[in-house]
């Protein structure tokens, strides 16, 4: 059985990761894997999209890939 609730997909958690270092969408999705949050793939994508729109992080291209980044 998946251990849901082990990791929570919240605005605060996303903010903390992006403040620490720039991340791609894939990096973020890796932090909030469905098997760790208990969310469905669709819910993960929707919630993460809403959080990113709200946080409005800086966009940086690093090594050809778009990264999101937040200042403290």
């Amino acid at each position: 059985t998946p251990s849901s609730g082990e990791v929570q997909l919240t605005e605060e958690a996303v903010r903390r990761y992006l403040t620490r270092k720039p991340m791609t969408t894939k990096d973020l999705l890796k932090k909030f894997q469905t098997k760790r949050t208990g969310l469905s793939s669709d819910a993960t994508v929707n919630v993460l999209a809403q959080i990113l729109k709200r946080l409005n992080p800086e966009r940086k291209v690093i090594g050809d890939k778009m990264h999101f980044s937040l200042k403290e």
Binding site: K26, L29, S41, T44, V45, N46, L48, A49, K53, M66
Partner: peptide
């Protein structure tokens, strides 16, 4: 071959399209 992670990243980027 695209993994589930790739599909989710693509979906997320599509969702953020006008934003990115």
């Amino acid at each position: 071959s695209s993994s589930e992670a790739d599909e989710m990243a693509a979906a997320l980027e599509a969702e953020l399209n006008d934003f990115m």
